[in-house]
Design a protein around this nucleic acid. Structure first.
Lengths: 196, 196, 196, 196
DNA sequence: GATTAACCGAGACGGTACGTCACGTCTTTAA
DNA sequence: TTAAAGACGTGACGTACCGTCTCGGTTAATC
């Protein structure tokens, strides 16, 4: 999908004038990620990004309309999808999925960025759309895993897998974002006791 | 709870000098709510609140340490807890609870304030604590409802009700905050199909 | 005149709120003059003035609407009117006047500021007015000197002294501003040969 | 003069590669004059000139080193020297000269450009030189007129005609640039009363 | 009744960051 | 080599808020 989109962009863009310097994009995203790590999403200033990247502010604004769009792309560019191999059973697959998911939560990289983007998405439809796409992408392996289980008959055919996926992930996010509660194997066990 | 706290403050503070003018508190909170409604939580400035309330900025800072604390209190002061009468069955109680909850979501009052506070809670422990208390308070009727059901035997004694409550609410919040997906009776039905 | 005006201002200004800090005015004007001396009128930036004066930019903009107004006031605040004692004859008075005037031209302090202000006056009526007042003030001793001479009968009663004053000063300014020609005793002598 | 200079450049430059497009020069000067008329000399940006002329910025910088040089040439290219026919008497010649001069002042074309160039000449020696040449050229008919009068004996042989020319023009410029005073026949009459 | 201390409105203060603009240079493709 | 287009680093612009501070002027409780 993104490959096609990319081709499209390339195809329709034999633009005139000096082309944009790809090294600028890289330097800006790199600087953004560094500063996010150091100081959180709030407290990130475009001035600081420009200075760190060795780039003019206009060069940033030429590429991203808002700070949030920049943060979102920086986050996305860094994203690795969780890979879940088929263990043959739903329980086995979920164990592996949650194992990796908990690692991410504990490592906590970019932990404060998500709240920042949620806030931003309220005011900016572009951020909203990008954030949705980002999350859908993150959820993809979980949906695949559930589809395998449904084919095996481990999950009733009547169950809406999209909703199930949300039920399996939402409580973790809820603690992360809202209550600050613990996110660990105990929570996952109790959650699976309830849902399965 | 807050009444007790308030009493406590009053009790230990028969301070000298001119007492604080209660009308200021009211005017400030009123102005804050108005501006939140008009322009969202971001875009709310202390200068604007002061101007709207006809109050000096210092009068605000004397009462609230940060803008977020002010927003949180403005939000809290407006809060009404959902009341669920005992219908005699879990399903009936949940129907009533979700009915009211969906009303709130659809009405959407203060919908963009929560993301703002989530963001703020990352950087400010006081906001974190107040936000937790606020959410615990909101969740209280749901927990009470579940306890009744567990006593009735409709829910296994081994189930952790706190986690169950989160599972029942989290997916709605997840859509609200993260995916922007639909939050309606269909979602609730599918959710209950999975959980119960 | 200015005393009356000042009284008026004081009388009508028992203003509310924190009064402006007079030390800021002084620091800003001082910094402006320093930077004018170091770098000329162009090349003077508000940022630099603020930094040098140890003052926020808003504190400057609160007082002066434009950079030009600031420069003009800095220049004016530094102004010393030429003093000409009555020597008893027109020729003697003029000798003394031109002596001091040539000193100023040679010393050249603020030499490049005048062109800057002339340019600014084209676009800003306030600068225009202030510049006129400043120049009228500078010309005052020359007009006084000429009035004495007219009373003595050294100048015909029909001569318009304002125009005469301009004729006596304009050629020097003309060289200064337009041709860059020499401004010295020779020029003054030839000028007086023509005019008197 | 400029024709000779131009020939010189052409003669010594049978350069290789694509020759410069003369239409570019015309378009750029045309755009510059238009924008000067519309928005004054300050407020003229190279970006705007390039856009208006349909030309790249580099094409402008290839021809003129600074914005001021461009403005100066645009102004000069538009210049018509005042022509004074010999009326047989100094007074008659001056009447005709001042008549045309006042017309120009009243018409006021490019009136705000001169202050701009004066300002620019302070910082740029090339502009200084070009401005001097431009003014000397403008003054030429006045000097010729005075020379005729001196030959006729209407002006004493001892009078420095260059200084006299400046005395006859400077007061008008003085009002134009510095005081914003009226420039009309009354001023000219009073001026001649004093000088002649 | 006088004193005292905290309150109040207004708004100035030193800062930080904003997003825009223009500068003069550089880098591409096309003529 | 010139041209149009436009990206680039730089740096100033004027604005908006931040949270603190000073004013003159209340408003009670304490002396």
């Amino acid at each position: 999908m993104s490959a096609i989109a990319a081709e499209g962009i390339v195809a329709e863009a034999p633009r005139r004038g000096r082309p944009r310097d790809a090294r600028c994009d890289a330097a800006i995203l790199r600087a953004t990620l560094d500063l996010l790590t150091e100081g959180g999403a709030s407290g990130l200033s475009i001035d600081a990004v420009a200075a760190r990247a060795g780039v003019g502010k206009a060069t940033i604004y030429r590429r991203w309309a808002t700070k949030e769009a920049l943060v979102l792309e920086a986050l996305t560019s860094d994203n690795e999808v969780i890979e879940v191999t088929d263990t043959g059973s739903l329980r086995g697959d979920l164990d592996e999925y949650y194992g990796q998911l908990l690692d991410r939560f504990q490592q906590g990289s970019g932990s404060d960025v998500l709240p920042y983007l949620i806030e931003a998405a309220v005011y900016d439809a572009d951020v909203r759309a990008s954030l949705d796409a980002y999350l859908a992408n993150r959820q993809q392996p979980l949906r695949a895993l559930l589809q395998r289980a449904q084919r095996r008959g481990e999950i009733a055919a009547t169950v809406d897998l999209q909703v199930l996926a949300e039920v399996l992930v939402a409580p973790l996010m809820y603690r992360r974002l809202l209550t600050g509660g613990r996110i660990d194997r105990t929570l996952v066990r109790k959650l699976l006791d309830i849902v399965l």
